[in-house]
Amino acid sequence: MKRAWMLPILLVFAGSAGATGLVLTGSTAVAVVTLVFFLLLAGTHSPLVFPRPVGALEAERRSAADGRPVVYWRPGCQYCLRLRLRLGRDARRVHWVDIWRDPDGAAVVRAANQGDETVPTVVVAGRAHTNPDPAWVREQLTG
């Protein structure tokens, strides 16, 4: 779990340090903008942006029951964030597995990607798709 929060924490510290330096030089307005930018950046790279993750075994069980895709992801991945943002509200209908929290999920991703932990990996009907187009994932929810 610590690994998932490393980048957001570093971004908060970097933004705070930069803003402090700017305040000390008298640039309060620029300091506020800098701090807000880094806080937003930290927020988008945190696990909070994604729906609550489930374990790989639970996601596979749920997917078998309702036919919805399983998305294997990790915090800090720009392609995972792109998929999440492009899905919008539909993201709640997908089963999300954080491979940094779930070793079984990481194993599924490695098996689908010749040993690499390439995410997002989306599994639909037992078939893995690495970094698919978000529009295609949305189609899988309606189809």
Rank of each mutant, 00 (worst) to 15 (best):
R110A: 12
R92Q: 11
L39A: 15
S46W: 14
W73K: 00
W96C: 04
R101S: 11
H95D: 01
G18T: 04
R68I: 06
L85I: 01
I99W: 11
D104P: 00
R101V: 00
Q78Y: 09
L10V: 10
G18Y: 10
A59P: 10
D116C: 00
Q78R: 09
G115F: 03
G43M: 09
T20V: 13
G15Q: 10
W73D: 00
A56C: 09
P47L: 05
P47M: 11
L48N: 09
A65L: 13
T118Q: 01
A112M: 05
D102C: 02
R89V: 08
A107Q: 07
L48V: 15
Y79F: 11
G67S: 13
V97H: 08
A56V: 06
E60V: 06
W73L: 03
C77T: 01
G18V: 06
R74D: 01
V30S: 07
H45I: 05
V122T: 03
P51V: 10
D116K: 01
G55R: 05
L41S: 14
L10T: 02
V123N: 07
S27Q: 13
R62N: 12
S27T: 01
Q78S: 14
L57A: 15
G67D: 13
F38H: 12
P51E: 09
S27A: 14
E60R: 14
I9F: 14
A106R: 06
C77D: 04
T121Q: 07
A64N: 05
V119H: 01
T44Y: 15
R61S: 13
A91P: 03
L83M: 10
R74T: 03
G67N: 12
T121H: 02
W100E: 08
D90Y: 03
R82Y: 02
V123M: 07
V32K: 08
V32N: 05
A19D: 04
L7A: 12
F13Q: 02
L22H: 08
H45P: 05
L57R: 15
W96Q: 03
V109R: 00
V30Y: 04
V71H: 07
A107V: 04
E117T: 07
R93K: 10
A112V: 06
A19W: 07
R86E: 14
L81R: 11
V32I: 15
V108M: 04
T118M: 01
V49Q: 15
A56R: 07
G105T: 01
F13C: 13
G43A: 12
R74E: 13
A42N: 12
P69F: 11
D116W: 01
T34K: 01
V30I: 13
S46P: 11
A106L: 07
T44K: 11
L39N: 09
P120L: 04
V94S: 02
V36T: 14
V54K: 08
V94T: 03
Q114D: 14
V49R: 15
L35G: 13
F38E: 10
P69D: 05
V23F: 15
P47Q: 12
